[in-house]
Design a protein around this nucleic acid. Structure first.
Lengths: 193, 193
DNA sequence: TGTACATCAGTGAACGCGCGTTCACTGATGTAC
DNA sequence: TGTACATCAGTGAACGCGCGTTCACTGATGTAC
């Protein structure tokens, strides 16, 4: 039967929401089209009214999650000291335990390189994230270089990936805490080796 | 037909080699038991003479790759300045482009948390790796704390994951270079913020 | 040392299952008059 | 405003396919005598 036009756009958005959450929680290959559609309260058939294929949905769900993630950073950095809070929140137990609402890179990082469509959407997300980090890293504008933004991001993503992969809660918390402390200490000294 | 006893053990090892390489290259769910067996030159049937299930193979292939990876670190650190070379090699284009022979954590990081058997094998690997890093980080024994080892590892894994996920070769090389430069600079200063 | 036979890793057809995707059908909505 | 009908998102059965796993069978190896 025919449905009100307004509902169609809203269902499209609901499919994207469900896909973005389920993909981050379980990985691309462990989530079926049927599972995503069930999560929106529909049967699997109309999926192809909304998306050309599962692969197309992967790419679009990354764009969808990226827009949300970037606006979260923008909201955080709009207030004073917001970036510091953002960094600490990123390396929190809560974030570790809710991949479905969390960082794309930490949740799907190792799988994205294998999906052509996902890769380019992801690249755009990373470029935008680096730029925001560069502008807003809390240790002052003079030292806040693009290289430092990249190093900070790599630490954060690596820490979350390891903290989630590990079986041992004490070790997992230790990883998050150590990297949090390292960020609080500011950029790497240039007087090392 | 019956086969020489010596061949059986050798085939078991070949299955583990093939699995460890294919899993790192394509991810657990994108590699089938048949594909692994074909890579060893056998048909899929005898797989179950060697392993109880695909899931059991995942866990054992992690142990197998871990043993190899740890002995590589040991070999590197046996010579002077070896650890520095190891760190630079980790963040090289070659390593980025050969996940099948490379770091477990960077290749399967986001998938391991979802596989119970793989998780505990991975945890043992991470514990052993952290300990080796702690002992051998190149900026001198006084500053080489466990926390610094963890921070270094998180940076390296994050950098490789991002460098592989990205579509843009220049950005990918920039990520590797920036994190390499950051490691060369030594541990984070405590005089930051 | 030579012969008879039990062993068991490998073969390849077969299993049930869930996947991504397609399609004939339904029927309230939106539109033409 | 009221009626007739074309539209099209949703339904759910069906498709071919590859997956993990099983199993009756094969036949050279290793062993008992």
């Amino acid at each position: 039967m025919r449905y009100p036009a307004a509902e169609t756009a809203e269902k499209h958005a609901r499919i994207l929401d469900a896909a973005a959450a389920l993909f981050r929680k379980s990985g691309f290959s462990n989530v079926s089209v049927g599972e995503i559609m069930r999560a929106t309260g529909l049967t699997h058939g109309p999926f192809y009214n909304h998306f050309a294929s599962k692969e197309a949905l992967m790419a679009q769900s990354i764009e969808h999650a990226s827009a949300k993630a970037l606006s979260d950073i923008d909201a955080a950095t709009a207030i004073d000291g917001g970036m510091e809070k953002y960094l600490q929140g990123y390396l929190s137990i809560d974030h570790r335990d809710s991949p479905e609402n969390g960082c794309l890179m930490a949740a799907l990082g190792t799988e994205i390189g294998r999906e052509a469509g996902a890769r380019s959407a992801f690249t755009a997300h990373l470029v935008a994230t680096i730029e925001r980090f560069r502008k807003h890293l809390p240790w002052g504008s003079k030292k806040a270089t693009r290289a430092e933004a990249i190093r900070t991001l790599a630490s954060m993503v690596g820490a979350l990936v390891l903290a989630r992969a590990v079986d041992d809660d004490a070790l997992s918390r230790e990883i998050l805490r150590d990297v949090r402390d390292g960020l609080r200490a500011g950029p790497r000294s240039q007087a090392g080796l």
